[in-house]
Design a protein around this nucleic acid. Sequence first.
DNA 1: TACTTTTGTTAACGGTGTTAATAAAATTAT
DNA 2: ATAATTTTATTAACACCGTTAACAAAAGTA
Lengths: 203, 203
Amino acid sequence: MGIAERKIRQKEEFRASILEAAWQQVISDGWQSLSIRKIADAIEYSIPVIYNHFENKEAILLEFTKEGFQKLADTLQLVKDQYTVPAEQLEAMAHAYWDFAFDHKEYYQLMFGLGIPACDRVNEIEELKYATSIMISTIKAAIEESNHPETDYFLKYHTYLSILHGLVSIQMIQKEGKPDASKKMILQDAVSGFIISINRSNC
Amino acid sequence: MGIAERKIRQKEEFRASILEAAWQQVISDGWQSLSIRKIADAIEYSIPVIYNHFENKEAILLEFTKEGFQKLADTLQLVKDQYTVPAEQLEAMAHAYWDFAFDHKEYYQLMFGLGIPACDRVNEIEELKYATSIMISTIKAAIEESNHPETDYFLKYHTYLSILHGLVSIQMIQKEGKPDASKKMILQDAVSGFIISINRSNC
DNA sequence: TACTTTTGTTAACGGTGTTAATAAAATTAT
DNA sequence: ATAATTTTATTAACACCGTTAACAAAAGTA
C-alpha cells in the first residue's frame, strides 16, 4: 500500500518546509532571533505542529550546525583534491576555511556558538584598547629586536591575538572546566611558532 | 550640605548591589540566563528600579565586559613586567592569557561573545568528525614529509584549527560583512608560520 | 505646612519556548 | 457505509523574558 509511503514523504516535506522557513529567519535576522512562533507563522500552521517534527528549538539549530559542518567538510575536500603537496593543501584549505566562514557566516556562527555581542560597540570599549596596547607594544619590541625590523607589527598583533583566542575558544567549546595541563602544549606549540616567525632570518 | 553626597553614595551602592546580584547569576548559570527579573528578585526590589541605574540588560553585561578586559590587561601587564626580553614576554603573556580565560571563564565568554552551544553534544556531531578527519589526514601527510616525522599530529591539528578559528572569529567580532582581501594577509602570515613550524629542521 | 523632586511600585505590552486538553481529519476495521 | 481508532492540528494556557507607562510613596526644599 502506497499510503504509508506518501505519509512518510509528506512528513519529510513538512520537516523540510520547517527547516526552510527557519533558515530564512536565520539568514535574515541571525540565529539568535529565530523563534518557533515565526516559523509557525511562515509555514501557516499552528505552533505545536513543529514539535511533531523537532524535539525543540535547539534540535532545529542542531540540524543547521550539522549541515554547516557537512558543507565545510565538502569544501575542504574539494580544495584539498586540487593539490598534491600536503603543505600546499594545508595552505589552500586554510584559505577555503576563511572563505567558507565569511561566505556562510550564519552557518559558521552557529557551528562555533558565536554569540556575536554588540559587534559595533566592542571596538569602543576603552579597556579593550588598554589590553591591546600592552600586546602591541610587546610585539613591536620583539620585531625591533628581530632580523626583520620592517615587519608589520599590526599584522603580527592580529595574528598573535587570533592564535590565542582560537586556542582558548576551541578548547572551551570542546570541554567543560579547565583543561588539563597537557593542553597547554598546544598553546606552547603555536606561540613558539609565532615567535619564530617573527625572529627568523631567511634560513 | 552632605545630603547630596549621601545620595550619590547610596546610588553608587545600589548600582553596585545590582552588579553584584547580576554577577552571582552569571557565575552560577552563565550570562545567557541572566535576567532583570532575577536581579530584581535578588536585591528585593521591583523590576523597573534597575532601569534607573542601567539603560538596559545589555548595559549591565557591558559593565562586566569592561571589567573583564581591565582584569585581562592588568594580568598581562603584571606578567609582562616580570621579563625583559620581548620574546619571553610574548610567551609568558600567552600563558597568562590562557590561564585568565579558564580562570575567569564567565568574563572571557562575555568579552568575546561566546554563546557556547550544546557544549557536550558538539563532539557527537558526525559531520564534525568528517571535517576533522580531512584536516588531520593532511596534517599527518605534511608531517611525514617533514624533517620531524615523529611530531604529534593531533597537537598540530589542534593548532591548525585553533589558528583558523581564531582568525575568523576575531575578524567577525570586529567587523560586520566580509573583510577586505587585505585581511587575508593575516591568515597567510599565520598559516605560513604554522607550515614552517611543521617543516623546519633545527636551523 | 505646601510644593517639588526623587524613588519605588503595580500592572501591563509584546515577546519567548513548551505543553496539556481538545477538536478535526484520515485511516483502519467491522 | 458505518463505527472505532489512530494521526494530525488547534486552542489555550503556563511560565518565563525585557521594557515601559501610570501612579503612589517617600524625601527633600520652599
